[in-house]
Protein backbone atom coordinates (compact mmCIF):
# COMPACT_ATOMS: atom_id res chain seq x y z
CA UNK A 1 0.00 0.00 0.00
CA UNK A 2 1.28 3.44 -0.84
CA UNK A 3 0.07 6.85 -2.02
CA UNK A 4 -1.49 7.05 -5.46
CA UNK A 5 0.18 10.20 -6.73
CA UNK A 6 3.82 11.10 -7.26
CA UNK A 7 3.26 14.38 -5.40
CA UNK A 8 1.48 15.73 -2.37
CA UNK A 9 -0.06 19.01 -3.39
CA UNK A 10 -3.58 19.05 -2.01
CA UNK A 11 -5.43 17.32 0.79
CA UNK A 12 -8.40 17.76 -1.52
CA UNK A 13 -7.16 14.95 -3.75
CA UNK A 14 -6.36 12.42 -1.00
CA UNK A 15 -8.50 9.39 -0.21
CA UNK A 16 -9.38 8.84 3.47
CA UNK A 17 -7.35 5.60 3.34
CA UNK A 18 -4.31 7.57 2.15
CA UNK A 19 -4.71 10.00 5.03
CA UNK A 20 -4.91 7.03 7.44
CA UNK A 21 -1.75 5.59 5.93
CA UNK A 22 0.12 8.89 6.31
CA UNK A 23 -1.01 9.27 9.93
CA UNK A 24 -0.18 5.64 10.81
CA UNK A 25 3.24 5.96 9.21
CA UNK A 26 3.85 9.25 11.03
CA UNK A 27 2.91 7.66 14.33
CA UNK A 28 5.56 4.98 13.75
CA UNK A 29 8.10 7.66 12.87
CA UNK A 30 7.61 9.39 16.21
CA UNK A 31 9.67 6.72 17.96
CA UNK A 32 12.77 7.95 16.14
CA UNK A 33 12.47 11.35 17.82
CA UNK A 34 12.85 9.69 21.21
CA UNK A 35 16.16 8.01 20.35
CA UNK A 36 19.60 9.10 21.39
CA UNK A 37 20.72 8.76 17.77
CA UNK A 38 17.93 10.25 15.69
CA UNK A 39 18.77 8.82 12.34
CA UNK A 40 17.69 5.90 10.18
CA UNK A 41 19.26 5.03 6.83
CA UNK A 42 16.02 4.86 4.83
CA UNK A 43 16.63 7.71 2.37
CA UNK A 44 20.38 7.31 2.00
CA UNK A 45 21.46 8.68 -1.37
CA UNK A 46 18.22 10.60 -1.93
CA UNK A 47 18.19 14.35 -2.40
CA UNK A 48 15.49 16.60 -1.03
CA UNK A 49 15.44 20.26 -2.10
CA UNK A 50 13.61 22.67 0.16
CA UNK A 51 12.61 25.45 -2.24
CA UNK A 52 11.28 28.15 0.04
CA UNK A 53 10.27 31.22 -1.92
CA UNK A 54 8.38 32.69 1.00
CA UNK A 55 10.08 32.99 4.35
CA UNK A 56 9.14 30.30 6.86
CA UNK A 57 11.71 29.18 9.36
CA UNK A 58 9.40 26.72 11.11
CA UNK A 59 8.15 24.71 8.20
CA UNK A 60 11.52 24.69 6.49
CA UNK A 61 13.27 23.51 9.63
CA UNK A 62 10.67 20.83 10.12
CA UNK A 63 11.17 19.49 6.60
CA UNK A 64 14.92 19.74 6.97
CA UNK A 65 14.93 17.71 10.19
CA UNK A 66 12.53 15.19 8.68
CA UNK A 67 14.80 14.66 5.70
CA UNK A 68 17.97 14.46 7.77
CA UNK A 69 16.56 11.98 10.28
CA UNK A 70 15.82 9.74 7.33
CA UNK A 71 19.41 10.23 6.02
CA UNK A 72 18.42 12.15 2.87
CA UNK A 73 20.69 14.92 1.63
CA UNK A 74 18.72 18.08 2.23
CA UNK A 75 19.48 21.27 0.33
CA UNK A 76 17.81 24.53 1.21
CA UNK A 77 17.12 27.07 -1.51
CA UNK A 78 15.43 30.18 -0.30
CA UNK A 79 14.45 33.49 -1.76
CA UNK A 80 11.32 35.46 -2.25
CA UNK A 81 8.83 35.15 -5.05
CA UNK A 82 9.58 38.73 -6.02
CA UNK A 83 13.30 38.13 -6.41
CA UNK A 84 12.48 35.12 -8.52
CA UNK A 85 10.26 37.35 -10.64
CA UNK A 86 13.04 39.81 -11.24
CA UNK A 87 15.75 37.38 -12.12
CA UNK A 88 14.78 33.83 -12.82
CA UNK A 89 11.22 32.64 -13.29
CA UNK A 90 9.83 29.73 -11.33
CA UNK A 91 9.90 27.74 -14.55
CA UNK A 92 13.63 28.48 -14.98
CA UNK A 93 14.23 27.42 -11.40
CA UNK A 94 12.25 24.26 -12.02
CA UNK A 95 14.22 23.38 -15.14
CA UNK A 96 17.51 24.01 -13.35
CA UNK A 97 16.48 21.81 -10.47
CA UNK A 98 15.39 19.07 -12.86
CA UNK A 99 18.87 19.04 -14.32
CA UNK A 100 20.23 18.21 -10.86
CA UNK A 101 17.88 15.22 -10.46
CA UNK A 102 16.49 15.76 -6.99
CA UNK A 103 14.20 13.03 -5.70
CA UNK A 104 11.88 15.43 -3.94
CA UNK A 105 11.25 19.17 -4.08
CA UNK A 106 9.45 20.76 -1.16
CA UNK A 107 8.01 24.09 -2.25
CA UNK A 108 6.68 27.01 -0.25
CA UNK A 109 5.38 29.86 -2.38
CA UNK A 110 3.30 32.97 -1.79
CA UNK A 111 1.10 32.24 -4.78
CA UNK A 112 -1.56 29.59 -5.20
CA UNK A 113 -0.85 27.00 -7.86
CA UNK A 114 2.96 27.27 -7.88
CA UNK A 115 3.38 23.61 -6.75
CA UNK A 116 1.08 22.47 -9.57
CA UNK A 117 3.37 24.20 -12.04
CA UNK A 118 6.41 22.49 -10.56
CA UNK A 119 4.66 19.12 -10.50
CA UNK A 120 3.95 19.40 -14.21
CA UNK A 121 7.54 20.35 -15.00
CA UNK A 122 9.52 17.97 -12.76
CA UNK A 123 9.88 14.22 -12.43
CA UNK A 124 10.72 14.64 -8.75
CA UNK A 125 8.05 14.22 -6.10
CA UNK A 126 6.66 17.64 -5.19
CA UNK A 127 5.48 18.37 -1.67
CA UNK A 128 3.47 21.51 -1.19
CA UNK A 129 4.67 23.29 1.93
CA UNK A 130 2.06 26.01 1.49
CA UNK A 131 0.98 27.87 -1.64
CA UNK A 132 -0.62 31.27 -1.21
CA UNK A 133 -4.11 30.96 0.19
CA UNK A 134 -4.64 27.59 -1.44
CA UNK A 135 -3.41 24.63 0.61
CA UNK A 136 -0.91 23.63 3.27
CA UNK A 137 -1.39 19.88 3.30
CA UNK A 138 1.40 18.91 5.72
CA UNK A 139 0.00 21.32 8.31
CA UNK A 140 -3.46 19.75 8.06
CA UNK A 141 -1.99 16.26 8.31
CA UNK A 142 -0.01 17.12 11.43
CA UNK A 143 -3.12 18.70 12.88
CA UNK A 144 -5.10 15.54 12.20
CA UNK A 145 -2.34 13.44 13.75
CA UNK A 146 -2.41 15.62 16.86
CA UNK A 147 -6.18 15.39 17.19
CA UNK A 148 -6.19 11.63 16.64
CA UNK A 149 -3.46 11.19 19.22
CA UNK A 150 -5.30 13.20 21.83
CA UNK A 151 -8.80 11.96 21.13
CA UNK A 152 -8.06 8.44 19.95
CA UNK A 153 -10.08 8.86 16.78
CA UNK A 154 -11.27 11.47 14.27
CA UNK A 155 -14.63 10.24 13.07
CA UNK A 156 -17.53 12.12 14.62
CA UNK A 157 -15.46 14.87 16.23
CA UNK A 158 -16.49 18.50 15.94
CA UNK A 159 -14.06 21.29 15.14
CA UNK A 160 -14.27 25.05 14.87
CA UNK A 161 -11.78 26.97 12.72
CA UNK A 162 -11.72 30.61 13.72
CA UNK A 163 -10.27 33.68 12.07
CA UNK A 164 -9.19 34.73 8.60
CA UNK A 165 -10.63 31.82 6.65
CA UNK A 166 -10.49 33.73 3.35
CA UNK A 167 -6.72 34.02 3.24
CA UNK A 168 -5.85 30.79 5.05
CA UNK A 169 -4.33 27.78 3.32
CA UNK A 170 -4.31 26.06 6.71
CA UNK A 171 -8.08 26.42 6.90
CA UNK A 172 -8.63 25.00 3.42
CA UNK A 173 -6.44 21.95 3.93
CA UNK A 174 -7.91 21.28 7.36
CA UNK A 175 -11.48 21.62 6.11
CA UNK A 176 -10.78 19.02 3.46
CA UNK A 177 -8.89 16.71 5.81
CA UNK A 178 -11.38 16.93 8.66
CA UNK A 179 -14.38 16.41 6.37
CA UNK A 180 -12.76 13.40 4.72
CA UNK A 181 -12.08 11.85 8.13
CA UNK A 182 -15.69 12.23 9.25
CA UNK A 183 -15.41 15.36 11.37
CA UNK A 184 -17.89 18.22 11.32
CA UNK A 185 -16.44 21.68 10.85
CA UNK A 186 -17.69 25.14 11.68
CA UNK A 187 -15.78 28.15 10.41
CA UNK A 188 -16.09 31.47 12.13
CA UNK A 189 -14.75 34.95 11.70
CA UNK A 190 -15.71 38.43 10.56
CA UNK A 191 -17.91 38.13 7.43
CA UNK A 192 -15.26 39.98 5.43
CA UNK A 193 -12.83 37.14 6.14
CA UNK A 194 -15.23 34.31 5.28
CA UNK A 195 -14.83 33.51 1.57
CA UNK A 196 -17.84 33.20 -0.73
CA UNK A 197 -19.30 29.74 -1.20
CA UNK A 198 -17.34 28.26 1.71
CA UNK A 199 -20.43 26.25 2.72
CA UNK A 200 -19.96 24.23 -0.45
CA UNK A 201 -16.87 22.76 1.24
CA UNK A 202 -19.26 21.11 3.68
CA UNK A 203 -18.81 23.48 6.63
CA UNK A 204 -21.14 25.57 8.73
CA UNK A 205 -20.50 29.29 9.13
CA UNK A 206 -20.83 31.08 12.46
CA UNK A 207 -20.46 34.79 12.95
CA UNK A 208 -19.96 34.72 16.70
CA UNK A 209 -17.07 33.06 18.50
CA UNK A 210 -19.19 31.71 21.36
CA UNK A 211 -21.56 30.08 18.91
CA UNK A 212 -18.70 28.51 16.98
CA UNK A 213 -16.88 26.94 19.94
CA UNK A 214 -19.87 25.65 21.89
CA UNK A 215 -19.68 21.89 22.22
CA UNK A 216 -16.75 21.36 19.87
CA UNK A 217 -13.83 19.00 20.51
CA UNK A 218 -11.24 21.12 18.72
CA UNK A 219 -10.81 24.87 18.35
CA UNK A 220 -8.30 25.89 15.73
CA UNK A 221 -7.37 29.56 15.90
CA UNK A 222 -5.80 31.10 12.78
CA UNK A 223 -3.15 33.75 12.69
CA UNK A 224 -4.41 37.21 11.77
CA UNK A 225 -2.15 38.91 9.26
CA UNK A 226 -1.63 42.55 10.12
CA UNK A 227 -2.13 43.69 6.53
CA UNK A 228 -5.84 42.83 6.60
CA UNK A 229 -6.59 46.23 8.08
CA UNK A 230 -5.30 48.08 5.06
CA UNK A 231 -7.76 46.29 2.80
CA UNK A 232 -10.65 47.44 5.01
CA UNK A 233 -11.41 43.85 5.95
CA UNK A 234 -11.37 44.62 9.67
CA UNK A 235 -11.44 48.01 11.38
CA UNK A 236 -8.62 47.42 13.88
CA UNK A 237 -6.66 44.76 15.72
CA UNK A 238 -8.29 45.95 18.90
CA UNK A 239 -11.77 45.27 17.58
CA UNK A 240 -10.69 41.93 16.15
CA UNK A 241 -9.22 40.83 19.48
CA UNK A 242 -12.35 41.99 21.29
CA UNK A 243 -14.73 40.04 19.03
CA UNK A 244 -12.62 37.09 17.89
CA UNK A 245 -9.79 36.66 20.38
CA UNK A 246 -9.98 33.46 22.42
CA UNK A 247 -9.75 34.20 26.13
CA UNK A 248 -10.16 31.92 29.15
CA UNK A 249 -13.59 33.50 29.84
CA UNK A 250 -14.82 32.69 26.36
CA UNK A 251 -13.37 29.20 26.58
CA UNK A 252 -15.90 28.45 29.30
CA UNK A 253 -18.44 27.92 26.52
CA UNK A 254 -16.37 25.04 25.15
CA UNK A 255 -16.15 21.43 26.31
CA UNK A 256 -14.01 20.55 29.30
CA UNK A 257 -11.72 18.39 27.12
CA UNK A 258 -11.46 20.81 24.20
CA UNK A 259 -8.16 21.03 22.29
CA UNK A 260 -6.82 24.45 21.36
CA UNK A 261 -4.71 24.42 18.20
CA UNK A 262 -2.85 27.11 16.27
CA UNK A 263 -0.62 26.70 13.21
CA UNK A 264 1.78 29.31 14.62
CA UNK A 265 3.27 31.73 14.99
CA UNK A 266 0.74 33.00 17.53
CA UNK A 267 -0.13 36.68 17.81
CA UNK A 268 -0.45 36.52 21.57
CA UNK A 269 -3.20 38.81 22.75
CA UNK A 270 -4.79 39.08 19.32
CA UNK A 271 -6.33 35.78 18.29
CA UNK A 272 -5.19 33.93 21.37
CA UNK A 273 -4.86 35.23 24.93
CA UNK A 274 -1.45 34.21 26.39
CA UNK A 275 -3.11 32.27 29.22
CA UNK A 276 -5.02 30.21 26.64
CA UNK A 277 -1.95 29.57 24.51
CA UNK A 278 -0.17 28.21 27.57
CA UNK A 279 -3.17 26.43 29.09
CA UNK A 280 -3.63 22.71 29.52
CA UNK A 281 -6.04 22.79 26.57
CA UNK A 282 -3.31 23.93 24.22
CA UNK A 283 -1.63 21.33 22.02
CA UNK A 284 0.36 23.84 20.01
CA UNK A 285 3.74 22.27 20.83
CA UNK A 286 2.44 18.76 20.09
CA UNK A 287 1.55 20.12 16.67
CA UNK A 288 5.15 21.18 16.12
CA UNK A 289 6.54 17.79 17.20
CA UNK A 290 4.07 15.96 15.01
CA UNK A 291 5.07 18.14 12.09
CA UNK A 292 8.43 16.40 11.82
CA UNK A 293 6.82 12.94 12.03
CA UNK A 294 4.26 13.73 9.32
CA UNK A 295 6.94 15.09 7.00
CA UNK A 296 9.11 12.04 7.60
CA UNK A 297 6.12 9.87 6.77
CA UNK A 298 5.52 11.74 3.52
CA UNK A 299 9.16 11.60 2.48
CA UNK A 300 9.18 7.86 3.17
CA UNK A 301 5.91 7.27 1.32
CA UNK A 302 6.78 9.44 -1.68
CA UNK A 303 10.46 8.69 -2.25
CA UNK A 304 11.28 5.78 0.08
CA UNK A 305 10.26 3.22 -2.49
CA UNK A 306 10.91 2.78 -6.15
CA UNK A 307 12.58 5.61 -8.03
CA UNK A 308 9.99 7.70 -9.89
CA UNK A 309 11.33 6.76 -13.36
CA UNK A 310 10.94 3.07 -12.68
CA UNK A 311 7.53 3.42 -11.08
CA UNK A 312 4.30 2.65 -12.82
Amino acid sequence: MGLRGKDLIEVRGLEPAEIELILDTAESMKEIASRAIKKVPTLRGKTVVNLFLEPSTRTRTSFEIAGKWLSADVVNVSGSASSVVKGETLMDTAKNLEAMSPDCVVIRHAMAGAPHMLARALRAAIINAGDGAHEHPTQALLDLLTIREKKGHLDGLKAAIVGDIAHSRVARSNIYGMRKMGMTVTVAGPPTLIPPGVEELGVKVAHRLEEAIRDVDVVMMLRLQQERMQAALIPSLREYARLWGLTLDRLAAAREDVLIMHPGPVNRGVELAPEVADSRYSVILDQVANGVAVRMALLYLLIGGKPAEAGA
Binding site: A112, G113, H134, R172, P195, P196, G197, E200
Partner: peptide, 13 residues
Protein backbone atom coordinates in the same frame (compact mmCIF):
# COMPACT_ATOMS: atom_id res chain seq x y z
CA UNK B 1 -14.23 34.95 -10.85
CA UNK B 2 -15.20 35.30 -7.21
CA UNK B 3 -17.20 32.28 -6.13
CA UNK B 4 -16.83 28.79 -4.75
CA UNK B 5 -13.98 27.90 -7.10
CA UNK B 6 -11.91 30.96 -6.12
CA UNK B 7 -12.52 30.09 -2.50
CA UNK B 8 -11.47 26.53 -3.12
CA UNK B 9 -8.32 27.47 -5.01
CA UNK B 10 -7.36 30.32 -2.73
CA UNK B 11 -7.14 32.72 -5.65
CA UNK B 12 -8.34 36.29 -5.29
CA UNK B 13 -11.76 36.80 -6.84
Amino acid sequence: HEGFVSTDLGLRG
